[in-house]
Simulated assay, not measured.
Amino acid sequence: MERTLIIIKPEGVQRGLIGQILARFEQRGLKFVGLKMLQMSPALAEEHYAVHKGKPFYTGLVKHITSGPVVVGVVEGRGAIKMVRTMMGATNAAEAAPGTIRGDFALEIGYNIIHGSDGPETAAREISLFFKPEELLDYRLASESWLYEEQANQ
């Protein structure tokens, strides 16, 4: 199983979209193993977006993500990173397909509702920024035997 980080950004929180967004991941069959709401500090935002430091949009990213509460979660499932990225849609919401989170709820790149880790190394780094190991749960969903073929035969 693979784990990845999601962040529902301030515009998603302020627009009352938390439940709808989280529900999409659960309905797809992904499992939340960590979830919390927080106000991101500038220091944490700078660390989270360190890969973009020096780029023209970096200051705006930090300012935006710290402008209001966010919801951070760790999602688990087979191929979770790719699945979450597909469900989110294109980074530029204007290009995101209908049916994706950004395609259904966002209009532009700056307020694109959600962040998701882009690979295994990034996911591990980002998860460790927001969650202590003891805050991540390890449990089995009763529905797993109906989600993964080999689980049904165990």
Rank of each mutant, 00 (worst) to 15 (best):
I6V: 15
I6P: 10
P10M: 00
V13Y: 05
V13C: 04
R15H: 12
G16H: 08
G16F: 13
L17H: 09
G19N: 06
G19D: 06
G19H: 04
Q20L: 11
Q20H: 06
I21F: 05
I21C: 01
A23D: 06
E26T: 05
G29C: 07
K31L: 09
F32N: 01
L35M: 09
K36D: 03
M37S: 09
M37T: 09
Q39K: 14
Q39D: 14
M40N: 08
P42W: 05
P42R: 10
A43W: 08
L44W: 06
E47I: 10
V51Y: 12
H52V: 11
H52T: 09
H52M: 11
F57T: 08
T59H: 12
T59K: 13
G60P: 02
K63V: 01
H64R: 11
I65M: 12
P69R: 03
P69S: 05
V72Q: 04
G73L: 02
V74M: 03
V74H: 08
V75R: 07
E76P: 06
G77S: 07
R78N: 14
R78H: 12
A80G: 05
I81K: 09
K82G: 15
K82H: 14
V84S: 11
T86F: 07
M88N: 15
M88I: 12
G89F: 06
G89D: 10
T91M: 13
T91D: 14
T91N: 15
A94W: 00
A96R: 02
G99A: 07
A106S: 13
L107H: 07
I109R: 07
G110Y: 10
Y111F: 14
I113Q: 07
I113Y: 10
G116W: 13
G119E: 03
P120I: 13
T122R: 02
A124Q: 13
A124L: 05
A124W: 07
R125W: 05
I127F: 10
P133D: 03
P133N: 01
E135A: 02
E135G: 01
L136I: 15
L137V: 08
L137N: 09
D138V: 07
Y139M: 04
R140F: 00
S143T: 13
S143L: 09
E144Q: 05
L147F: 10
L147V: 07
E149K: 09
E149H: 10
E150A: 01
Q151F: 14
A152Y: 08
N153V: 15
Q154R: 14
Q154G: 10
Q154E: 13
